[in-house]
Nucleic acid binder design. Structure first.
Length: 368
DNA sequence: TAACCGTGGAG
DNA sequence: TCTCCAAGGTT
C-alpha cells in the first residue's frame, strides 16, 4: 500500500522541521532532566493504568494544583475501575463537583463500565481498544499508552505544542486540529523508544516548569542548546495561537423557594447541553420582564401561592464560552407542594448531598 | 470545522 | 477588571 499524495506532503513537512535535529541527544537531555526534577505527584506513586487514566482525565484543561485534592478523594472513594463502574452517576458527579467539564466524569464512568463488562476490569493496553473508550481522545490515548504501558505513542497537549513550537520553530496555529496532528507526526520521529513515558512527561513537565507561556526560564532550560526560537530570539512569539471568541451573555431569574420547615425546591438539569444532570434552583431565562412580572410568573408556573420575601445577591458566573447573570429571588411557601418530575424538596443540610454547579453553590453559601 | 463544554489561577 | 490559559474531547 503506497502512501497517498497527502501523506507524502505531510512527511515532507515533518522532514523540514526535523532534518537538522539531534533527537538522540535531545531525548537524553530531556529525560535526564525529568528524572531529577520531576514533581512528586499523587498519580506518580505507581503505574496503575486506572489511576493514570483518572489523573489524565482530571488534568484536561485543569491545573495540577486544582486536581490534586480531587484525585486523592476520587481514588479513595473509587479505588479501582470496577469500584467506579459500580457507583451511581450522582455519586460520581458529586465527587467531580467544582472541577468543571462534567462530561469528563460521565464519560469516564461510562467507559469504566465498558472496561468492567468487556475487559474484566483491566484497562486495555491495545491502542485500538483504548481509543474507542468514551472521553479518551488523541492526547489521553498517548498519555495512557506511554505512562501506564511504556509504549511510544505521542501525547500532544498544550505544553508539548508550546515546547516543540519553540524548539523546532513551528509557527502553525495551535488552535487548529491539523496542527496537533503535525506535532504527532513530528513526535513519532523524535520520541524515545526506550523510555517514552519519561519523554512525554518530560515535555509536559518542561512546559509547566521552564518553557512557560509567559516568562519562560530559558537560562535553566535543559534543552536550550536545541532551541531554534531561543537562537533566533523568537521565544516570546511562539506558539502562535488564534484569539478566543468573546463569550455570549445570558440573564436568568433564579427562584429559591423555601418551606416553613426549611426545605428547598431543587431540580435536576437535563441530559443534554450545559451541566448535564447537575442540580440547580429553578431558573428561567429572562430578556425583558421585570421583578413584578417575575413574581406573577413564578406563581403561575408552579400553580401555587408563593410569597416573595426578598432578593439574594446576584451571581455572575463565567464559563468558557458563556456568561451567566443570575438574579436570585427568595420565596416562602407554607409547605412542600407537587412541583414536577425532575424536582424535589430537600432540607438545607441535605443540599450538600447533591451535585451543584459552582454558580448555584454560590447561592447556597448565602443561606447562612 | 468550529462551537460547545467549567473553573480557578496568574499576570 | 481583563485576558490568557491549564496534562482536551465531542459533535
Amino acid at each position: 500500500m503506497s502512501p497517498t499524495q497527502k501523506e507524502l506532503e505531510q512527511n515532507l513537512q515533518v522532514d523540514t522541521y526535523t532534518k537538522a535535529f539531534n533527537e538522540q541527544a535531545f531525548q537524553s537531555d530531556l529525560i535526564n532532566w525529568f528524572q531529577i526534577v520531576k514533581r512528586d505527584l499523587p498519580w506518580r506513586q505507581d503505574q496503575d493504568p486506572y489511576k493514570v487514566w483518572v489523573s489524565e482525565i482530571m488534568l484536561q484543561q485543569t491545573q495540577v494544583d486544582t486536581v490534586i485534592p480531587y484525585f486523592n478523594r476520587f481514588i479513595q472513594q473509587f479505588p479501582t475501575a470496577n469500584a467506579l463502574a459500580d457507583a451511581d452517576e450522582q455519586e460520581v458527579l458529586k465527587a467531580w463537583e467544582g472541577l468543571g467539564y462534567y462530561s469528563r466524569a460521565r464519560n469516564l464512568h461510562h467507559a469504566v463500565k465498558e472496561v468492567k463488562a468487556n475487559y474484566g476490569g483491566e484497562v486495555p493496553k491495545e491502542i485500538q481498544q483504548l481509543s474507542t473508550l468514551k472521553g479518551i481522545g488523541p492526547y489521553t490515548l498517548g498519555a495512557i499508552m506511554s505512562i501506564a504501558y511504556d509504549t511510544p505513542v505521542p501525547a500532544v497537549d498544550g505544553n508539548v505544542m508550546r515546547v516543540l513550537s519553540r524548539v523546532l520553530l513551528i509557527g502553525e496555529d495551535i488552535k487548529m486540529q491539523k496542527t496537533r496532528k503535525l506535532f504527532e507526526r513530528v513526535i513519532e520521529r523524535i520520541i524515545s523508544q526506550t523510555d517514552p513515558s519519561s519523554f512525554n512527561q518530560g515535555l509536559m513537565e518542561l512546559g509547566a516548569l521552564i518553557c512557560r507561556p509567559k516568562n519562560p526560564d530559558c537560562i535553566n532550560c535543559p534543552v536550550k542548546m536545541y532551541c531554534l526560537a531561543l537562537k533566533e530570539d523568537k521565544v516570546a512569539d511562539l506558539p502562535v495561537k488564534a484569539k478566543a471568541k468573546k463569550q455570549k451573555e445570558r440573564n436568568y431569574f433564579v427562584a429559591v423557594i423555601e418551606t416553613e420547615d426549611h426545605q428547598y425546591l431543587i431540580e435536576k438539569r437535563t441530559e443534554q447541553g450545559l451541566l448535564q444532570n447537575l442540580f440547580q434552583f429553578p431558573m428561567f431565562e429572562t430578556t425583558q420582564i421585570d421583578d413584578v412580572l417575575f413574581n406573577e410568573y413564578v406563581n403561575a408556573y408552579f400553580n401555587h401561592p408563593i410569597k416573595f420575601t426578598g432578593k439574594l445577591a446576584p451571581v455572575k458566573h463565567v464559563f468558557s464560552h458563556l456568561i451567566w447573570h443570575l438574579d436570585v429571588y427568595h420565596f416562602k411557601v407554607e409547605g412542600a407542594f407537587t412541583a414536577g418530575e425532575n424536582k424535589r424538596w430537600v432540607e438545607q443540610a441535605a443540599l450538600t448531598d447533591y451535585p451543584f454547579s459552582v454558580s448555584h453553590q454560590q447561592i447556597i453559601r448565602q443561606f447562612d
